[in-house]
Nucleic acid binder design. Structure first.
Lengths: 150, 150
DNA sequence: GTAATTCCTCAAGTTAACTTAAGGTCAAGC
DNA sequence: GCTTGACCTTAAGTTAACTTGAGGAATTAC
């Protein structure tokens, strides 16, 4: 009773390499959408494999699933997107990457300037600039990196 | 009863901009060491301010506290480190940064090559290579990105 | 027709890097 | 001598991205 264009979650898992639980999780977060069959089981479209592949690639590039969800919004759910639609998204990610790279390079250069100077104190070193940081890659709370005076 | 070279945790917090709880946490993780006064309160050395500043800088560069702890191991606890000692560590971080940058650049270039090609599938795209990824920047479990067959 | 898979839905656990809260002690000022 | 304010400890909460487990239906395989 499996229509040709309807994949079970297990099949999608096998084809993408994702775990079943991860796919359910992605659906919960709105990255993919499925329909249910008469027995209440999920059925995915073939095009969702590509969609999920994109999710995995974007994660490798270091994007959060929230960000990826944002990026995927313009794509149609449950219909294969066109090349143009994909490329728009890719270009968007490119710019983001570009920015992260240059931030990192700036920081590295500053570190180079500082090696051996022994000036490691926050007010002098110039390396410590909370504003343009590589921050927010870590996880939990990190509420106040800003200035004092509450 | 505060000796000149003995700072309370509150003072260290004020001078570094860290929160008191963060400093306690760092101590627990071995990034700094304190002694206790007669009443059981922590006393830090002046040199710990610079040590903690370094921790903050390293975090901006995107290093985990575990990694930072490793890096700080060769430094003497509770004695101001020499310039040579500092610069050795900085150089170490530099190499690490260098590597992260080139990985990111490689990925960006691949993305550039892919923009608009519409080939987003894991086996074709060349963008999806779990091995040299920007991975492990995210947080929780991420046990299996590898191949199947358990 | 029944056993073995696969799937479903919660609820709770995991890591990292801290924070917040609760309940009590220490130190400094008046 | 007492009242703030700073400090202490321990336990539990927070985000992200999932996993693991429990208890129960739906499918598939023989």
């Amino acid at each position: 009773m499996q229509k040709p264009n309807q994949l079970s979650i297990g099949e999608v898992a096998r084809r993408t390499g994702l775990s079943v639980s991860a796919i359910r999780f992605y659906e919960e977060r709105g990255l993919v959408l499925s329909v249910r069959n008469s027995g209440g089981q999920r059925r995915f479209a073939r095009s969702d494999i590509r969609r999920l592949s994109f999710v995995m690639i974007a994660q490798q590039l270091g994007f959060s699933i929230e960000r990826i969800g944002e990026a995927l919004k313009p794509l149609p759910l449950h219909r294969a997107p066109t090349k143009t639609e994909w490329s728009k998204i890719a270009r968007n990610f490119h710019d983001d990457l570009e920015q992260r790279i240059s931030t990192l390079i700036r920081l590295r250069d500053k570190l180079d300037g500082c090696i051996g100077c022994g000036c490691l104190s926050l007010d002098q070193c110039g390396l410590y600039n909370p504003a343009d940081s590589a921050q927010r890659l870590g996880t939990g709370p990190r509420y106040v990196i800003s200035d004092e005076m509450p």
